[in-house]
Each structure stands twice: as C-alpha cells, then as structure tokens.
Amino acid sequence: MSDHPTTSPQSRYTVADRAPRKLSAFLLRWESILVMMLAAVIIGNTLKSPYFLDPFNLADATYNFSEKAIMALIMALLILVREIDLSVAAIVALSSLAIGYMGEAGYGPLPLIATGLAVGLVCGAFNGFLVTRSGVPSIVITIGTMSLYRGIAQVSLGDQALTTYPQRYLDLGQSYLFDWPPTPLSFFLFLVLAICFAVFLHKTSAGRQLFAIGANPVAARFSGIRVDRIRLILFTVSGLLAGLGAVLLTARIGVMRPNIALGWELDIITMVILGGVAISGGVGTIGGVVLAVFVLGLATFGLSLMNVPGIVINVLLGLLLIISIAAPIVIRGQSGRR
C-alpha cells in the first residue's frame, strides 16, 4: 500500500544516515549465522577428532576445496547478476586437456599455465558471447557448452589419460607455498582472490553496478550500465578462473582424465547459495561465500576424518543446503503469503 504525503514539496522529513544498530538485526544477518555454523563445525570436529586442529592436516584439507572455492568467487558474481555458469567444470576438463597435451609435448611450467588459462578464457568468452548475443537464459547456454566442452575432452582422450608433466609444474600443486603456516598455493590464491573480489564487489562502482543488474536488469540499462558488456566480462572471468582451477588441479593430481572435476559445478553452486547469494539476484556478499566455503570444506574434512564415506557427506551437505535456506523462511513464517 502506498501513501503519498500531501504536504508541499518543501517539507522536510528527518531521515537518519543508517539503520539504528540493533543486536538482533546483526545476529540475524546471514554472515553471522554462517559464523555460528563455522564455530559449530570447528568445535564439533575438535571434540570428535584430535587430528582436526593439526595445522598440516588443515592445510591438506584446503586442497580439497581451494580450486572450487576460487571458481565459487566468480560464480557468486554471476548468480548475483541473475546468471549461472554450469560449464565451469567442463572448462576445467578442457583446460586440463590442453595442459596435458602441452605436458606430453615437453613444455615447461609457464607454457602449461599460460595454455590452461588461455583455454579457460576462450571458453568463458564463448559462453559470454552466446549469452549476450542470443538472449537465451545462461542456464540453457551453459548446459549446452558444458556438453560441448566436456564432449571435446572425451572425443580427444577417450578412455586414455595424460600423465606426463614437468616436476616443477607438479610441485606447484603438491608442495606448500610457505612452510609455516603451511599454505598450499591454491589456498593462498583463494585468499588473495577473495580479498580482490570483496574489494571489487563492495567498494568499487563496477561492483555496485552488479547489484543493480541483479536487482533489476532493465532499470540497470536505463541507468547507464553496460549490462551486456558486464555479463560478457563476468563469463570470461569465470572461464579464466576455471582455467586457473584446471592449472592447480592438474598439478595436484598429476593426471588428466576426461571425467576430471565431474560434477564440480553443483558443488560450487552449493557454496555460493549457502553463502547467501540469492538465486533471484541482487543480494549477496563475498564474505558470506568465503564463510560458506569454510563451513563446507571443514565439515567435509571433519566427516572424512571420522571415516564417513564421501557420498554420505554429500547427503549431509545437501541437507545442510536445503535446511539453511528453508530454516529462515520457516522461522520468519513467510510461507504462503506473497
């Protein structure tokens, strides 16, 4: 219901600069809930297993999520602007394929890395080109390119594997960047990129424009925002970071098969959604995504320390995703009404 003040336009209302600070509002913020979830995961795991808090164990645990987490950063921006990229895992496969061939051909680490990044960039730009030119929802386009990219990897490799890589390249994925605190390169890159993404999204004008596009793409265009150009850039960066994921993953496992990173797109989307980015666009923070990465990564690690099978962990994470989204809705009693 709207009400129009019928007083003259000269009248002034007193409007505060910001909301009054309330503890309840702070605690109900999604990030606060994630912090509590993270605390629960850490405390629970520490009580259950004496190995959990060991720095070397934790460092090894980061291997299992850092590559995905890097890709989750850009997926968060895509979902924020109402897009989605289902082809990221397939881009990892295609980039990894190219890295594998370069490895077989005897090139050194730098050409391998450059190739991986370049293939990712091209795949991402192709996605972006199709999405912005066709006007078809990106979920459809990227289902198509997902099949295309992974299909190319399958056609090229069949049931073979590529296993020849220079040692200096493998070291990137298998040794620590710093010895103390023990920090794998992938985790370090994730932290650096997370800070860059957070500053970009929350402190720059281009970042602000992403919120506008997500909140209302039509109004964004009317407000002078180059919506299609931004979409194209985001998809391209998504490809580039998938290429980076491929560089790190291939170095870590030292083998490329066509089913590499299979199903990662869903894991990554889970990180983003649990991080509080609304699938309907316009709402989300990088801080939330980073916290969700840690919640998911440490929960997985803790459960595997307890010898829970991976697939059962998936059940629990699926439940966590649905419950964490459903719980606030149930609590606020927002169902039924609209």
Binding site: R12, Y13, V15, A16, D17, R18
Partner: peptide, 8 residues
C-alpha cells in the same frame, strides 16, 4: 522530501 526511516 523522501520519507524514510534511514537512507540505507
């Protein structure tokens, strides 16, 4: 003369 509680 925007009427609101606060600007955020």
């Amino acid at each position: 003369s925007v009427k609101a509680a606060h600007w955020e």
